[in-house]
């Protein structure tokens, strides 16, 4: 009985996959034309890149909740890891250290570029934040960043900044219209402010998810 269970699970999953595929092939054409709606309103969104417009303007609450979820996940990880002694950045191979020292500033530069270009071309807060986090992970692997037992005040502000700025902007435009409907004249500037703080927070949170859960090794 116990032996047979995985076989049954695999068979049922395969059946589900086949049913999904059959349903997809059977779908009627689109009833709603979303790309057209996005293109028609792009001029009023404050940015020229459709995906950034969707993320920060048309469906801004998705991104608002997303940064909240990220922060919540970090709280979960921080609550779970054993408080261990901070510091103890063990030095790695000198070559790796030098490489990390050279690469980290370049990665920060790339993150800044991705953030800026996001208004008009592929890029934006998520990718920029990911590159920042990768720089943090690289520095940690090279032994140049210490692990930390508990984030200090400055770090806490950085972790929460994205959510705080986003909520503040959302509250500020509430008087103008509905939630996260920016005045078209200010939209571009507001989106840049939100994205800059989001980049910093996403980068710090993603790096922290790695730094907090990796322990000090002898």
């Amino acid at each position: 009985m116990k032996r047979a269970l995985p076989v049954v699970i695999v068979a049922l999953a395969a059946l589900l996959g086949a049913a999904l595929a059959a349903a997809m092939l059977d779908l009627p054409p689109h009833a709603v034309r979303l790309p057209g709606a996005v293109a028609a309103n792009l001029a009023a969104s404050g940015v020229a890149h459709p995906i950034t417009a969707v993320l920060l303007n048309f469906r801004g609450y998705d991104t608002l909740l997303e940064i909240a979820v990220l922060l919540l996940a970090l709280f979960g990880v921080l609550a779970l890891v054993k408080p261990h002694a901070a510091g103890a950045a063990h030095p790695a191979h000198p070559l790796l250290q030098t490489l990390a020292r050279l690469l980290a500033p370049l990665m920060v530069l790339v993150a800044g570029y991705l953030l800026w270009i996001g208004a008009s071309a592929p890029g934006g807060a998520f990718q920029a934040g990911a590159v920042l986090a990768a720089a943090g992970v690289l520095l940690r692997l090279a032994g140049l960043l210490p692990t930390w037992a508990a984030p200090n005040l400055l770090l806490r502000v950085g972790l929460a900044l994205g959510l705080l700025v986003f909520v503040a902007v959302a509250a500020a435009v509430l008087g103008h219209a509905t939630l996260l409907t920016y005045p078209p004249a200010l939209a571009g500037g507001l989106i840049l402010v939100i994205e800059a703080s989001l980049t910093l927070s996403i980068g710090l949170i993603l790096a922290a998810l790695y730094l907090a859960s990796t322990e000090v090794r002898p």
Partner: peptide, 10 residues
């Protein structure tokens, strides 16, 4: 971009 940095890297 995001998948290469996050999905594969982090």
């Amino acid at each position: 971009l995001a998948e290469a940095a996050i999905g594969a890297g982090l």
